[in-house]
Amino acid sequence: MFWFLLIALVVVVTAVALAVVGGGDGPGRTATGGLADAPPDRPEAWLPPDRPVNRADLEALRLPVAARGYRMAEVDDVLDRLGAELAARDARIAELEASLAGAQAASMGRDDLFRKPGDTAEESR
């Protein structure tokens, strides 16, 4: 009985090994006969590299989940990118607001808005 079980075990292991290694172009197999590579089990944290991030990009963003939460490196990359873009936008807004204030002052004919207190018109020219 022992020899029968041992031979049956060898036959089953051999059959499974042949099924995995060889077997043609069935579903899930490559042209060389081996198993095809599995697709990645986690989505990429994708943000467009060639343009600023917009609301739709953030709504579509899905961060990959690890065993104990989110993957820290990918979350840090996303937060760094968003922080840099927000800082650039804040700087641009401040620049445009200063430009608008200067244009409004010039249109009102008040050049004294840009002088320091105590300066006279002759000193600033």
Rank of each mutant, 00 (worst) to 15 (best):
F4I: 08
L5N: 07
I7N: 02
V10E: 03
T14N: 11
T14D: 13
A19K: 02
V21K: 05
G22C: 04
G23S: 04
D25I: 03
D25V: 04
P27V: 14
G28E: 00
R29V: 04
T32L: 09
G34L: 15
L35K: 03
A38C: 02
R42F: 14
E44C: 09
A45F: 15
A45W: 15
W46C: 05
W46H: 13
P49C: 14
R55A: 05
L61Y: 02
L61Q: 04
P64L: 11
P64D: 10
V65P: 00
A67N: 11
A67W: 10
A67S: 13
G69H: 13
E74C: 02
D77Q: 13
V78C: 05
A84Y: 00
L86E: 07
A87K: 00
A87G: 02
R89D: 10
A91K: 11
R92L: 07
I93S: 05
L96H: 13
A98C: 02
A98R: 15
S99L: 15
L100E: 14
G102P: 00
A103P: 00
Q104I: 09
A106P: 00
L113Y: 06
L113K: 07
F114I: 06
R115M: 08
R115K: 06
K116I: 06
D119C: 02
T120I: 08
E122Y: 09
E122L: 14
